[in-house]
Simulated assay, not measured.
Amino acid sequence: MMSTLSQTKELFRNADAVCFDVDSTVIKEEGIDELAKFCGVGDAVTEMTRKAMGGSVTFKTALTERLSIIRCSREQVNKLITDHPPQLTPGIRELVERLHERHIKVFLISGGFRCIVEHVATQLNIPLDHIYANRLKFYFNGEYAGFDETQPTAESGGKGKVISMLKEQYGLKTVVMIGDGATDLEACPPASAFIGFGGNVVRQQVKERSSWYVTSFRELIKELEKI
């Protein structure tokens, strides 16, 4: 059953942990689209991302197809992070600081790539063991060798699996998921509440199905100030 707006706000204020999606939520862009552009196959991959986020194909299928077009080398990934580091969404740094001040654990759960997400986590002082994301695989010569299909985030429903695992591992009762896409929305339940984020891109089905939908992290910071 979906929480009401006031219930969602209360769960957020009293959360044991807050889990954020990364692409188009914590950062302004979709990491896989940026990687595709950098490797010269941007248009083909952007269209597939749109389908994946809209929920019209399974996440794993979309990820496999997009990566088979990109076929990025380790060197290209490293160069992307150096030359075009991910752009943080305004307000996220302050929001994470406020959550940490209140001893609320912060996790990043992403269908994107760990190498990019680690860079983001470091900027936000989020421990690297609080990251759940997909791992790219490379051959010894640095060429693309696929991705680790055993990671829960490689599957549709994977974010929910991670949240169930976190609840058990850390003994968390109230866990809030924040994100822009279909894969974030479907993580609630097991998440106690979901907050839709439309500050970078608005996905209509997510907006319609969120009891609390925000377009700026300032709205969440303001809510924490009520404590």
Rank of each mutant, 00 (worst) to 15 (best):
D129S: 01
R50N: 12
F194D: 11
G112D: 03
A191R: 06
Q7S: 14
E29H: 10
L5N: 05
I109V: 15
G160S: 10
T64M: 03
L172H: 04
D148M: 06
V201I: 14
D16S: 04
N78Y: 05
V96Y: 08
I81M: 04
G158S: 12
S211E: 14
A145R: 02
Y132C: 06
F138W: 10
V175H: 09
Q204N: 13
R93S: 15
K161A: 15
D21I: 06
M48H: 00
R66Q: 05
I104S: 06
T89C: 10
R66I: 03
P152T: 10
E223L: 15
M177V: 04
G199W: 02
V77L: 13
K159T: 09
L80P: 00
F107M: 09
L224K: 04
I70G: 10
K79Q: 15
P85G: 10
V45S: 01
L166P: 05
L220S: 03
H100S: 15
L67W: 06
P127H: 09
Q151P: 02
V26S: 07
Q87K: 15
F147P: 08
D23R: 08
L172N: 00
V214D: 00
D33G: 05
F59L: 15
P190F: 06
I70A: 07
F20M: 07
G112S: 13
K167Y: 04
R218A: 14
M48R: 10
L166I: 01
G55F: 12
P86R: 07
S211G: 14
Y139D: 05
G181L: 09
F140T: 12
A187N: 11
P190G: 05
K9C: 05
F147L: 07
K167L: 06
H119R: 11
F147N: 07
H119F: 11
Q123V: 05
A182V: 15
I116Q: 06
Y213R: 10
E47I: 11
C39R: 01
Q169M: 11
P152F: 12
T183L: 11
V120E: 11
L220K: 01
T46W: 00
A52C: 13
D129Y: 10
R74A: 15
E143Y: 05
I221S: 13
G42I: 08
N14S: 14
F20Y: 11
